[in-house]
C-alpha cells in the first residue's frame, strides 16, 4: 500500500514554476529520500503535503485520503519535522511535548510514558531548562521527539540532519531506523551519505520534476559499468596489457584505469592475467557514487 501519493502536482510562485507536474508515491514502511539542491522545491512539496500551501494543479493523498489545503484531517497521520523547528521557548521540552500530546488528544498516562521514552531517545532527558536556551541541534532533537510523539503513520523530515554534529547525525539516523518499524519516512536532504545510510528509495528533484527515482540499487545499476583500476607489478606488464585492453587513462607507469567496465569485462581481464601469469598488486572495481550520478543527471 502507498502511504503517500502525489499525482501531477504543480506549483508556481508568480512566474517562477517550482514544481512541474510532479508524480510519485511512497510505499508503506519505506524510508524515502527526497533529494535536490537548494531551491529545488523540497520544502515547497512538503508544505503542499501538509496542506500549508495550495498546489496549482494535481492531487495528493496521505494514507489513501486526499489532502485538503488548509486544516487538513490527513495531518493526524503525519509527524512533521520542519527544517527550522520553532517552539514556544518559555516552555521546557517536557511541557512542550505535553502541549503537543494534548492537542492530538492523547490519554494522560500514555502521553507521559511516551514523553519520557522519547526524551530519553533523543537525549534530552533531565534537561529542565526552557527551550529559550537551546542550541539548534537541541531544537532538532526536540523536533524529532515531537514529530514521533503520536506514532505517526507518515513521518516527514525536512533536512533534519543539517544542524547536527557527526555524532548527533548518526544518532538521528539510528532513531529513524528504529522508527521505521511503525512509520513511513520521507526525508528531504542534500547530504547524500545520509541517504545511502538509511534510505530504501530515493527521488531526485530537479527543475520541478523527478529526474531520478527508484531503490538505491536500481539507481546505482542505472549507471552501467563502473570504473576499474589495475595496479601492476612492473611497467612492462602494464604496457603489454595496454596493447590488449586499451586503457582509458594511464594514471602512472603501473596504474591503468578503465571506464565503463562491467563485471564480465573484469572477468575477461582476470582470465587474461591468469593465463599469461601477469602479476598484479591490486584490482578494484570502483562503483560510481551517488554524488557522481546526481551530478551527471543534473548537468544533463
Amino acid at each position: 500500500m502507498d502511504m503517500l501519493t502525489l499525482s501531477h502536482v504543480s506549483k508556481a510562485f508568480g512566474e517562477h514554476t517550482v514544481i512541474d507536474d510532479l508524480s510519485f508515491s511512497v510505499a508503506e514502511h519505506s524510508v524515502f529520500g527526497f533529494i535536490g539542491r537548494n531551491g529545488a522545491g523540497k520544502t515547497t512539496t512538503i508544505n503542499m503535503i501538509l496542506g500549508l500551501l495550495r498546489q496549482d494543479a494535481g492531487e495528493i493523498w496521505v494514507n489513501q485520503e486526499p489532502v485538503h489545503y488548509g486544516q487538513t484531517t490527513t495531518n493526524r497521520y503525519v509527524g512533521y519535522l520542519p527544517d527550522v523547528p520553532e517552539f514556544y521557548d518559555f516552555m521546557t521540552p517536557k511541557e512542550y511535548l505535553s502541549l503537543c500530546g494534548d492537542i492530538t488528544g492523547m490519554q494522560k498516562a500514555q502521553k507521559n510514558n511516551r514523553i519520557t521514552e522519547l526524551l530519553e531517545l533523543v537525549g534530552l532527558d533531565g534537561i529542565n531548562k526552557h527551550i529559550h536556551g537551546f542550541s539548534r541541534g537541541m531544537k532538532q532533537r526536540l523536533g524529532i521527539a515531537q514529530a514521533l510523539l503520536n506514532q505517526p503513520l507518515l513521518l516527514i523530515c525536512d533536512e533534519p540532519t543539517s544542524a547536527l554534529d557527526p555524532l548527533g547525525r548518526k544518532e538521528f539516523l539510528d532513531i529513524l531506523s528504529d522508527a521505521r518499524q511503525y512509520t513511513t519516512i520521507i526525508f528531504s536532504t542534500h547530504i547524500l551519505s545520509d541517504v545511502e545510510r538509511i534510505c530504501d528509495e530515493i527521488a531526485l528533484l530537479n527543475n520541478g520534476k523527478i529526474a531520478l527515482c527508484g531503490t538505491l540499487d536500481e539507481i546505482k545499476g542505472l549507471h552501467q559499468g563502473s570504473c576499474l583500476e589495475i595496479v601492476f607489478d612492473s611497467d612492462r606488464d602494464a604496457a603489454a596489457f595496454q596493447g590488449i585492453f586499451p586503457a582509458t587513462k594511464q594514471l602512472s607507469d603501473v596504474r591503468l584505469s578503465f571506464d565503463k567496465t562491467t563485471k564480465t569485462d573484469m572477468l575477461h581481464m582476470m582470465q587474461y592475467l591468469a593465463e599469461h601469469h601477469i602479476q598484479i598488486q591490486r584490482m578494484e572495481l570502483l562503483e560510481a557514487t551517488l554524488e557522481e550520478l546526481f551530478m551527471e543527471v543534473i548537468s544533463e
Partner: peptide, 15 residues
C-alpha cells in the same frame, strides 16, 4: 513571525 503555529497546526489544532 516566529512560525510557532506551524507545528501546532500540523498536529491537528483547530484554527
Amino acid at each position: 513571525q516566529r512560525g510557532t503555529l506551524i507545528l501546532i497546526v500540523t498536529k491537528g489544532m483547530k484554527h
